[in-house]
C-alpha cells in the first residue's frame, strides 16, 4: 500500500516567489526532510534546501512547516495531517536567498559581540580545573544548543520589530547565559547584556522556548536569571541610593 501526500513548498528568490505543490509517495517513519529531498531528486532538481545531519544534531534544516518554525529532519509526517497540503517555507525573519534557504549570517556576526570565554586561573598545579557535575549541569543545558536559529526566527522582537541592531535574540542570550553561568568564567558580562545585547527587549512570551528542538528552557533558565542579575546590578534601590552601577 502506498500513500501520497502533497507538499506546498516555497519556490523563489529575492525577486519573488510562490508556493508550488508537489505530490510524493510517503512511507512509514518518514520526516518532512525525507519528502522534500525526494521531491528535489525526482521533480525539482535545482531546489535550494539546507540540511546536514538528518538527526536533529546540526540545526541546518530549520524552516517553517505549516507556519510553525521546526526542523524538517525531526518533523514526522505521522504527526501532521496529510489530508491537506503540508506547507514548507523558509524562516521569514532572515533575508531570503532562495527556496527554503535563508541568510542566517547575522547570527554569526552578532555572536562576535559576545566577549570571549575568560577562565579563572587553573585550580591545580598541572593547569587543570575542578568543577562539580551539579555546577556544570546548568551550563550543559545551554551548550546543547545546535544553532538552528528557530528561536531567533520566532522572536517577535526580531521578526516583527526588526530590532537587529539593538537586540541579540534568544539564541545569543542562551550563549551569554552559558558564559555567565560557566563555573570558570571570570568576565563581567552584565553591562553588555543590558546595553549592547538589549536583554530588556525580551518580554518573556516564551515563544523561543516553545520552538526549541533541544528543549532548552530558554526563557526560564537562561533569560530570566540573566534579567535578574542585570536588575540586581543596575536597579537595586539600595545600591542606587549609594551610587552603584549605571
Amino acid at each position: 500500500m502506498t500513500a501520497t501526500a502533497t507538499f506546498s513548498i516555497w519556490r523563489g528568490d529575492l525577486q519573488g516567489g510562490k508556493l508550488v505543490d508537489y505530490q510524493t509517495e510517503i512511507v512509514q517513519g518518514m520526516v518532512v526532510l525525507d519528502a522534500v529531498r525526494r521531491i528535489q531528486a525526482d521533480q525539482a532538481n535545482d531546489m535550494a534546501v539546507r540540511w546536514n545531519c538528518k538527526a536533529g544534531k546540526c540545526g541546518s534544516c530549520a524552516t517553517e512547516i505549516n507556519g510553525k518554525p521546526r526542523l524538517m529532519c525531526m518533523t514526522r509526517l505521522s504527526d501532521l495531517s496529510t489530508t491537506q497540503p503540508i506547507r514548507v517555507e523558509p524562516m521569514r525573519t532572515f533575508p531570503h536567498i532562495r527556496d527554503l534557504v535563508t541568510d542566517v549570517s547575522w547570527n554569526f556576526a552578532k555572536k562576535r559581540t559576545v566577549r570571549k570565554f575568560n577562565p579563572r586561573k587553573p585550580d591545580a598545579a598541572d593547569g587543570t580545573w575542578r568543577m562539580a557535575q551539579i555546577d556544570v549541569d546548568r551550563v550543559q543545558e545551554f551548550r546543547k544548543c545546535i544553532e538552528c536559529f528557530l528561536c531567533q526566527d520566532v522572536c517577535h522582537v526580531l521578526r516583527n520589530h526588526q530590532l537587529f541592531d539593538e537586540y541579540i535574540g534568544p539564541r545569543l542570550l542562551v550563549y551569554d547565559a552559558a558564559l555567565v553561568m560557566h563555573p570558570l568564567d571570570s568576565d563581567q558580562r552584565l553591562a553588555d547584556l543590558r546595553h549592547a545585547h538589549g536583554i530588556g527587549y525580551c518580554n518573556i512570551t516564551k515563544c523561543c522556548t516553545n520552538v526549541c528542538p533541544e528543549e532548552i528552557k530558554i526563557t526560564d533558565n537562561a533569560i530570566i536569571p540573566l534579567k535578574e542579575r542585570v536588575v540586581d546590578l543596575y536597579f537595586d534601590p539600595l545600591t542606587r541610593l549609594f551610587g552603584g552601577a549605571r
Binding site: 570565554f117 577562565p119 593547569g127 587543570t128 580545573w129 557535575q133 556544570v136 550543559q140
Partner: peptide, 20 residues
C-alpha cells in the same frame, strides 16, 4: 583535551571535579 577545557568546553565530571 585539556586545552579545550581552557577554551570553554564543559565535559562531564568525576566526583572529585575532574574530566570524567
Amino acid at each position: 583535551v585539556r586545552e579545550l577545557e581552557a577554551w570553554g568546553a564543559v565535559f562531564d565530571r568525576t566526583p572529585d571535579g575532574r574530566i570524567l
